[in-house]
Amino acid sequence: MSVITIERKVLEKNDQIAQKNRDDFTANKVFPINIVSSPGSGKTSILEKTIEHLKGKLKISVIEGDVQTDNDARRISALGVPAVQIVTHGGCHLEARLVRDAMDNVDLHNTQILVIENVGNLVCPANYDLGEAHKVVVVSTTEGDDKPVKYPNMFRNSSVLIINKIDLLPYLNCNVEQLEKNALQINPSLKIFRTSCTTGEGIDQWCSWLELQVLK
């Protein structure tokens, strides 16, 4: 019997590919964000509003991740923005390799913001670097104010929190101040936006922030 010391990160292969993605984004002056949330919190709706807001100002490309169907890529394409769909066929998260493959179909020279919309899941995508500049986590008010406490990894690993469906607050038992407090205890540097894709509230602020990051 002999012992072999290894000391290697389990996800190092993913991290290495993510770094290659990041290098390509930097070389092409692309600002990449990775949007994560549970299913149904409004990632695609926020993206649609963002595109409507920034179209004509900034060149946006989108990589959509879903377990099944290309519904989301079709929604984005309908707005005149190039969208590549990754179907994971059951896979619960995107990995750097899947994004790298999808990048073959993205015109990086003509992209200023690349939005990667992850598979709806607050657990697994937290662990996988895709090469993004920021993870943006979306939580909707219908999910309750304890989401950050239940899924701390995602909130710790994200730099932006969007609290969506803010217009529904009067009808829900969700304390948005408590939600923000819970999130900030896990990650004090989180930048927070409150949005509604129905009324348009907060979309201006979110898009202004995004614009500023791209033009930095």
Partner: peptide, 25 residues
């Protein structure tokens, strides 16, 4: 997962361990 110092309530903390995922031997 409350990343605040229980001593002085500061949120300026460094994570020393707890995020590892590695094959050691």
């Amino acid at each position: 997962p409350v990343f605040m110092c229980p001593g002085c309530n500061s949120a300026d903390v460094t994570v020393l361990s707890g995020t590892e995922l590695q094959v050691s031997e």
